[in-house]
């Protein structure tokens, strides 16, 4: 089981949305992390054969996915970022329709639909019209839809957007359960989503994968270290301008700062253990002073 991406590039007129991306994925959960406009959606659309790359190749088990055509789509499940549906269909109709275009036989489709609705916590609501669902419920139907054909490759574009904390936890557990014998690629801006479940994290920036590895590997390889210190209130601005600041908290004797720096910023600052959030800021964060640059 291997999905290999080689020098994948996608240009839209003057924008290069995905730039020479190469990576290999096997069974497991991959978290694609990046700011808005990093190119996550574009990369995923190419992996789903929705977009033809400008350059580079994508292969599944050594075979070009565009040449595989239907055979590839048979093992693919995709939840798009802006997930659309047929407003007047009930949940059941919708899932049965998607099942039919995914090539499931009606008997199998009925069974799968029941199981999946149970799994995403929507059983008993089959007859509800899609347009009457809340945002989070729609997303859950979206996840169910992607899972219908029991795909080997599951691509989820911001699956947790709009889910409440309970649902988010449920979702993480669900993904972990599903991850066996499956390749799951999910994109998000929410660091905690991937921190728990992703076996490998891909950091994407301006169309490139700028770092990848497990959480620990990435933290170990972080180019900056994390420091915390307490400073006078009027000094805060100075630090925010010159360092990537993770956190600011008012304390009794001034302001407590958590920031990133290659060297110890002040003699009395303490080095802290880095988290994934620090990592995110390290790669994607800006110093307050850079904002207009």
């Amino acid at each position: 089981m291997e999905l290999a991406v080689t020098k994948l590039t996608k240009r839209f007129q003057d924008i290069t949305a995905v730039d020479q991306v190469s990576c290999r994925m096997t069974a497991g959960v991959y978290g694609l992390l990046g700011v808005n406009g990093a190119g996550k959606t574009t990369l995923m659309r190419m992996l789903c054969t929705l977009l033809r790359p400008t350059g580079g190749t994508i292969t599944w088990e050594g075979e070009d996915i565009f040449a595989m055509d239907g055979r590839y789509r048979k093992i693919l499940g995709y939840l798009p970022q802006d997930f659309g549906y047929y407003p007047d269909f009930s949940i059941c109709d919708y899932l049965m329709y998607v099942a039919s275009i995914k090539g499931l036989r009606p008997v199998t489709a009925k069974k799968r639909t029941g199981q999946l609705l149970e799994l995403v916590g929507l059983s008993g609501m089959e007859k509800k019209k899609m347009k009457k669902l809340s945002g989070g419920m729609k997303r859950r139907v979206g996840i169910a839809q992607a899972m219908l054909n029991d795909p080997k490759i599951l691509i989820l574009d911001e699956p947790t957007a709009g889910l409440d904390p309970n649902e988010r936890i449920r979702f993480r557990n669900l993904i972990s359960e599903l991850a066996e014998e499956r390749l799951i690629l999910l994109s998000t801006h929410i660091v905690s989503d991937v921190a728990y479940i992703a076996s490998e994290i891909l950091l994407m920036r301006s169309g490139r994968i700028c770092a990848s590895g497990t959480t620990d590997e990435l933290i170990a390889a972080m180019p900056e270290r994390v420091w915390s210190m307490t400073v006078e209130k009027d000094q805060t601005e100075h630090f925010m301008k010159n360092y990537k600041t993770v956190n600011i908290k008012a304390a009794r004797d001034g302001v407590e700062l958590r920031l990133l720096s290659g060297q110890r910023p002040t003699p009395d600052s303490r080095e802290e253990a880095a988290t994934l959030e620090d990592l995110f800021l390290c790669y994607f964060g800006e110093k307050a002073g850079e904002e207009d640059a």
Binding site: G70, R73, P80, F83, G84, I101, K102
Partner: peptide
Amino acid sequence: SGEFSWKSDAVFFTSFHGRKRA
């Protein structure tokens, strides 16, 4: 055109039959 206005195009075109039977 409905698939596009409903934004259900992505699911439609990534399905097994999407580009053929559907």
